[in-house]
């Protein structure tokens, strides 16, 4: 069970400020959606939670179950609870998909080997559930996978590793409607009181299949509005420009955006 709290998070990429004070709380069992225009800092937030060294936290904290994780290395965060489904998963042909997932499970198991037969059984079941060709277990990690196959493979890894906190960075990008439904099925299968999730997306359509508890809108490196699933539906009709205009007007009247 993981509760994520982000307080006044300010992040630089090189010399450029990307996040300008993000505040966010995700309670155990909740699924949140994070939306916003291109270049507004959504992926930066995702990568910063995971600990990508390309991003420098200049202020603020990230707390997971009351523990400040900002000083933890990437792998420590992963072993603690965090999983990031990446926008562009890497290809590593020299290790098979199955061996890689098994190695990751071993690492999360205090380095003790996870029994192979139950692992393979679970892997097979999850691959069937996600309609992944069984031969892909023995292929190199993401090697020569299509974009959609890589996204499904990210969900497979999530289902095998069973993190308490998952961040899905544009998991729906590049998916056709059938693949989107399968990915959504995987996310919904994870739903429980011990699993919380932040889904970064540009489009409402993912949220038709994975209904979030909370939707956040990010602009200029801050979360400027939060609400229920209807916020995404409204945004689909009006677009970001109108929201920006409204928020600008509110700002000029002295209202806080957060």
């Amino acid at each position: 069970m993981s509760k994520l709290e982000i307080r006044n998070l300010k992040v630089n990429a090189g010399d450029e400020r990307i996040l300008n004070g993000v505040n966010l709380q995700i309670n155990p069992g909740e699924i949140h959606a994070l939306m916003g225009p291109n270049g507004t800092g959504k992926s930066t937030l995702s990568e910063t939670i995971m600990g990508n060294p390309l991003y420098e936290i200049v202020d603020g904290q990230i707390w997971l179950d009351g523990q400040d994780i900002t000083e933890m290395s990437v792998d420590e965060r992963a072993r603690t609870a965090v999983f990031l489904a990446m926008q562009y998963p890497m290809e590593v042909a020299g290790i098979s998909n199955a061996d890689f997932i098994h190695a990751a499970l071993n690492a999360r198991n205090q380095g003790q080997p996870v029994a192979v037969l139950p692992f393979l059984k679970q892997l097979k079941a999850n691959m069937e559930f996600l309609e992944i060709n069984p031969e892909y277990a023995d292929r190199g990690l993401n090697a020569d996978f299509s974009g959609g196959e890589k996204k499904r493979n990210e969900i497979l890894q999530m289902m095998m590793l069973r993190p308490e906190m998952a961040i899905l960075d544009e998991i729906d990008s590049g998916l056709d409607i059938d693949a989107l439904k399968i990915v959504a099925k995987g996310i919904n299968a994870m739903r429980s009181t011990t699993f919380s999730c932040l889904m970064v997306t540009h489009y409402q359509r993912l949220l038709n299949y994975v209904v979030p508890d909370v939707v956040h809108i990010m602009m200029d490196g801050r979360i400027v509005k939060s609400g229920g699933p209807e916020l995404a539906t409204d945004l689909e009709k009006t677009g970001y420009a109108e929201l920006e205009e409204t928020l600008g007007s509110e700002t000029s009247h002295g209202n806080s955006l957060e």
């Binding site: 990508n52 792998d75 072993r79 990031l84 990446m86 590593v92 997932i101 990751a104 690492a107 999360r108």
Partner: peptide, 10 residues
């Protein structure tokens, strides 16, 4: 980074 993000030590 990708491999570490799954929990594998450096």
């Amino acid at each position: 980074y990708y491999l570490q993000s799954r929990g594998l030590p450096m």
